[in-house]
């Protein structure tokens, strides 16, 4: 297979680039449609994460009724957890499953000979899915908020940064999920990988609880890891717990990690292709 040729990044003529853009757009639509085909399962999956979020909300309501901790009062915590919930729902239902299955069954060979870039294709699909995931999660979050006495509006000072930060959640989560999917080239098992990935993200992204509540070593580690940008940063910005220079820095870190993960994933993909071409699909 001419993997090497497919991998070579040549500058494309303008009309080719347009054609590719159209291809990716239709892939985004395909991703969304595939998700709709499994709608019942998707909604039950969403229900599952809703229960997870609900238990956290109830727990913190009860804990914080005694007064604020680590600078978080109940309304702030509620806002934090709901934003973290929506962020956590992105790229959570389709991309990695499909990748893992196709790699395991060898169908990935077909993806290799397609005249579009593998990583951009998965990115486009995930984007289509993410639109639906985000929409559903926002509805669920609003429902939960209504149940628990409303959510305070976002902090107006950091709102602009919050929007940027929220948008950056997607490439970050895509990078991690995509790479964990690629690992199947080496492990052939995905269930365990996925569980480990979810556990790591849950711990280091501050999805369950703001990172300040966690032991010192976790806070230090998460400062050097890409995960905080996947929940903690936007949630902190929304709940107004992050301001000034720290806020701008946090968003910048998100952006740098997004680019970094993208490049890292590229490297991993070419390693995977080498493995595929040497050992066969």
């Amino acid at each position: 297979m001419k993997v090497a040729a497919a991998l070579e990044a040549r500058p494309l003529p303008a009309d080719t680039r347009m054609r590719h853009l159209r291809a990716y757009r239709s892939m985004a639509r395909t991703g969304l449609k595939s998700l709709l085909a499994y709608q019942t399962s998707f909604l039950f999956g969403m229900l599952a994460s809703t229960f997870g979020a609900l238990s956290m909300l109830y727990l913190w309501r009860s804990v914080l009724s005694a007064g604020p901790r680590h600078g978080f009062d109940w309304p702030q915590m509620k806002a934090y957890l709901l934003v973290a919930f929506v962020a956590g729902s992105l790229v959570s239902s389709y991309t990695d499953y499909r990748m893992a299955n196709r790699i395991k069954q060898g169908d990935v060979a077909i993806d290799l000979v397609r005249p579009v870039d593998y990583q951009w294709s998965r990115f486009a699909e995930s984007l289509g899915v993410a639109a639906y995931e985000a929409g559903t999660a926002v509805v669920v979050a609003l429902g939960a908020a209504a149940l628990l006495g409303g959510v305070p509006l976002p902090d107006p000072d950091t709102f602009g940064l919050f929007v940027v930060s929220a948008l950056l959640v997607f490439p970050l989560r895509f990078g991690i999920v995509y790479m964990s999917g690629l690992l199947v080239f080496w492990t052939q098992n995905y269930v365990g990988l996925q569980a480990a990935r979810i556990a790591l993200i849950t711990l280091f992204s501050g999805a369950l609880v703001p990172l300040v509540f966690l032991p010192e070593w976790i806070q230090v580690a998460s400062a050097y890891l890409p995960f905080a940008g996947m929940a903690s940063t936007p949630a902190l910005l929304y709940s107004g717990s992050l301001g000034g220079g720290a806020a701008a820095t946090a968003v910048l870190v998100q952006a740098v990690w997004s680019a970094g993960l993208w490049l890292l994933a590229r490297g991993m993909w070419s390693a995977a292709c080498r493995k595929l071409t040497i050992h066969g699909g």
């Binding site: 492990t187 052939q188 098992n189 269930v191 365990g192 990988l193 569980a195 480990a196 979810i198 556990a199 790591l200």
Partner: peptide, 13 residues
């Protein structure tokens, strides 16, 4: 490999 991945991820979770 599966066995180790599953066991380790369980401990992690």
């Amino acid at each position: 490999a599966d066995f180790w991945i599953m066991s380790l991820s369980a401990v992690l979770v």
